[in-house]
Design a protein around this nucleic acid. Structure first.
Lengths: 204, 204
DNA sequence: AAAATATTTTAATCTAGATTAAAATAATGT
DNA sequence: ACATTATTTTAATCTAGATTAAAATATTTT
């Protein structure tokens, strides 16, 4: 699904930098991580980063844009693959988590949007809201197709996305745990969504 | 429940400072907020803060300790008030959220523990783990008393606590929303815990 | 392998913001 | 009102880390 053929050396290096930065930002926050921290993680010196981004603010911005893109990919694929709202929600959670804990990770937590410059902040906020709205749409879909119990979709969305967003705070690249996470989380988070099966039911 | 009678002016001011700091840290992170930010929020100048804390690092540390204490209060009260594991979990969530969005709030999100100095980091980590363990104990209790469906308590705990921890990222003191939050979140988060009622059931 | 281009480094600024010291103001007890 | 203590301010350092410029190295192209 959506692969670039032969990414340029520049693009590859830039992506490595964004992932290293995401790692640092997730641990110690935007201002808490120095460019030296990020550069050293890749065996570089700080000024080298300026070949790839205009400044530190843009580095976070790019991390956030990248995270948004990956999140959107996961959601789009889930909508394609899922047969109803509940399944789409489950798949989205799984895909999203798989990306977070997989080779494409880590994804930056968008926890410091307020620190971005106005234009960037507005754009990232837009992407972020779009994502939330997308998830709420899946919930609504599930409610209307009968797979999801009627609920406050805004609040439910906030609850579930909060769980997801917090993952990088406690998960630090343990292979075994990664699998357990991708298996368990979607189950746990979707269990509360399941439509009550009152009386008899046809499926399964 | 647990009130100090006649807090000294010093203690009161100090608490106002910790709450202001928590507010800033939650928005822009530890290093992202200057002492000036915190001081200005109270109509003070930055050096005034040094009358209450040794330095910036201790300010965060104190915020985290305060958050831990409030979280513990909520949990202890819930354990007292709840008749079974499920009820205890629900009540804990409600109490915790009520504190977060009430006059005692905001509570600092412990998102930058790595930035603390070693001794403080260790202590906060200890408190944090203790809290997690406490919540897991409630889940186990619920499983054994039959109110909660058997589950991976570690993962389930992570999922639910993540939701809670993320709240300050999107909630910013709206009275109406605060009530909705305290009402809805415990419901949403506990719904997935409820023990399946297979066949007939005596209660209710 | 030379030339041209791309990438990284070393060395040098520059600034925000943490911290400290001393002075000023406010609060409290007598 | 006076003296003492508590709190805050103004003014002055000091430093980490972002940024820039110029030089050095590596890579690609011809």
């Amino acid at each position: 699904m959506a692969q670039k053929l032969k990414e340029s050396r520049f693009d590859q290096q830039r992506d490595r930098i964004l992932r290293a930065a995401a790692h640092c930002f997730n641990q110690k926050g935007y201002s808490g991580t120095s460019l030296k921290d990020v550069a050293n993680l890749l065996g570089l010196t700080d000024p080298a980063l300026y070949y790839y981004v205009r400044n530190k603010e843009e580095l976070v911005y790019q991390c956030y844009v990248r995270a948004a893109a990956l999140g959107r990919e996961a959601m789009e694929q889930a909508v394609i693959d899922g047969s109803n709202g509940l399944e789409q929600a489950r798949l989205y959670l799984r895909y999203h988590i798989e990306i977070m804990v997989g080779e494409k990770g880590p994804m930056a937590i968008m926890s410091e949007i307020p620190s971005l410059q106005p234009e960037h902040r507005d754009e990232v906020l837009r992407l972020s809201r779009k994502h939330s709205t997308g998830f709420e749409a899946i919930l609504k879909q599930g409610i209307s197709d009968g797979s999801i119990e009627p609920c406050d979709v805004r609040m439910t969305g906030n609850a579930i996305m909060g769980s997801i967003n917090w993952i990088p705070k406690w998960f630090h690249g343990n292979e075994a745990l990664a699998h357990r996470l991708a298996d368990e989380f979607p189950k746990i988070l979707s269990r509360g969504l399941v439509r009550d099966q009152i009386g008899a039911e046809s499926n399964d």
